[in-house]
């Protein structure tokens, strides 16, 4: 476990982990948005990689991926973007969120070496379940990267025990069935699921998928150690697209006040 993960894990805050798409709407905007998120109190950052066939994502993140693709953003450039973020002073753990095919084409070994050298802390592959992840898991530990595990309310009990006890970085608990996207309601019995996930887990348990308001986020404080917000933030970036390209300073200001409105008051 590296220094950045140590700080993350020892934090007593209700941890905020935002997701944004690399290259949306352009590389420099991604850098400034990342720094803004850290200034607003983000404890870690998930950086998505644009992909033609994102089958775990809803329409908001699909559109962000299309904008990223239009900027010719790819996995290699996303990883290299992280070293630029480090040069610009970003201190929180960064997790690369990539579909497996992109990893395969770049080459798992090449990716891992590049990621380690660029200051990446973790990898999350939404279409690589535990059963298929043996090799990547082994290679990630050799390169000091956390392979983030996702667990779902449909995950069987014995598998939940195994995944939560072996989790590194943090354990990602999916709040509801379905793809990423803003939701007005969550699954009944979610608290029990989170409780079960926490039971055997040595790392913080984060809840994600569908969270878009301060009220929703506060609802899980107590049953989880942190939260992930993706689609709601990406949607705000979509709204600010033209300003992020031409009037960035103003756009970042608006973005920061949006993030502040989203966060529970005590987490800053």
């Amino acid at each position: 476990m590296n220094k950045r993960w140590e700080v993350f894990q020892h934090s007593s805050d209700y941890r905020f982990t935002p997701y944004i798409m690399a290259g949306d709407p352009c590389e420099e905007a991604t850098i400034e948005l990342s720094l803004a998120l850290e200034q607003c109190g983000a404890h870690a950052l998930e950086l998505g990689v644009p992909y033609s066939d994102p089958l775990a994502d809803g329409p908001v993140i699909q559109r962000a991926g299309m904008r990223g693709l239009a900027q010719n953003m790819n996995l290699e450039k996303t990883v290299k973007l992280v070293s630029k973020l480090r040069e610009r002073g970003l201190k929180i753990p960064v997790i690369i969120f990539t579909y497996y095919n992109l990893l395969l084409q770049l080459g798992e070994n090449r990716f891992l070496k590049l990621a380690e050298d660029s200051g990446v802390d973790g990898v999350l592959v939404p279409d690589l379940p535990y059963e298929e992840s043996g090799y990547l898991q082994k290679m990630c530990s050799e390169h000091n990267l956390a392979l983030i595990s996702l667990v779902s309310p449909t995950t069987r009990e014995e598998k939940l025990v195994r995944l939560s006890s072996e989790a590194e970085g943090f354990l990602y608990c999916i709040s509801s069935l379905g793809v990423t996207g803003i939701r007005s309601e969550f699954r009944a019995g979610l608290d029990d699921f989170l409780k079960a996930a926490k039971q055997n887990c040595r790392v913080p348990v984060l809840v994600g998928f569908g969270l878009s308001t301060r009220e929703q986020i506060q609802q899980f404080d107590g049953s989880s150690d942190g939260f992930i917000v993706g689609s709601a933030i990406v949607k705000k970036i979509e709204e600010l697209e033209s300003d992020l390209l031409t009037n960035r300073e103003e756009a970042i200001k608006t973005f920061k006040s949006y993030i502040e409105s989203l966060l529970p008051v005590y987490s800053r």
Partner: peptide, 20 residues
């Protein structure tokens, strides 16, 4: 028994549908 045809095949899907 892992659903492989040589290197091909497998189950590359989100965790939510693995049980299904």
């Amino acid at each position: 028994n892992r659903g492989r045809y040589g290197v091909f095949g497998g189950k590359y899907v989100p965790e939510t549908i693995m049980f299904a």
